[in-house]
Amino acid sequence: MTQLPSHTDKKLGLAIDLDTCVGCQACVTACKGWNDQSHGLSDQDPYGAEPSGAFLNRVHSYQVEPEAGAAQIINFPRSCLHCEDAPCVPVCPTGASYKRVEDGIVLVNEDACIGCGLCAWACPYGARELDQAAGVMKKCTLCVDRIYNENLPEEDREPACVRTCPTGARHFGDFADPDSAVSRLVAARGGYDLMPDLKTRPTNKYLPPRKKDRPQEASVLAPLLDIKATGLAGWLDKVLGKI
């Protein structure tokens, strides 16, 4: 049913650390790989001139110029935020899109989807992409087929993107529990929502980049630049300086 649940027992989601993300795209590849193997995530013309395909996670790269100081490059992973007031769910005419009461994960039942694309229009975050081969909507499943999967070793029961991230920039957990690691991380680092005015109440939070150190006034090489040459070298230095 595309009515949103008024309450979910858990609020599973990701806290994404923009301070540590290095933009390596490993999570993009891991996500694509896992989901392509499990239920298919097609590409079109993958080895041709215009390769294109459905991905559930994309990593952007932005330049941010503060009022004062140097510009920064910030890498920005973007996947479904598993919103509490997910606008993508009520618009769905078939009931294919739904939000789970038990853990808050937003999913698409591909067997019911007509591929109308309305849910992708309703999502402000660009988190849904239509699979051009299957004709149905795809989105981040929060790796629902990993996190509860008892066939996997314990340490693999987390989302593929989280498991693979070499810098630990993606954290998975339950935001309904104020004592969970992700909740504490968000509280400590001032984790925030994307486009909060749209009232989607995202579960996923973004941890802002930490303040950079003040730019160094003098070069770190300063002591070396000041060396006075002596002897022959000193004489040469003097003579050559005069020419």
């Binding site: 920064q72 402000p124 925030y192 929502d193 994307l194 973004y206 802002p208």
Partner: peptide
Amino acid sequence: SATGLGRIGK
């Protein structure tokens, strides 16, 4: 606002 990075700068 889409990235939340507006709080740092342009």
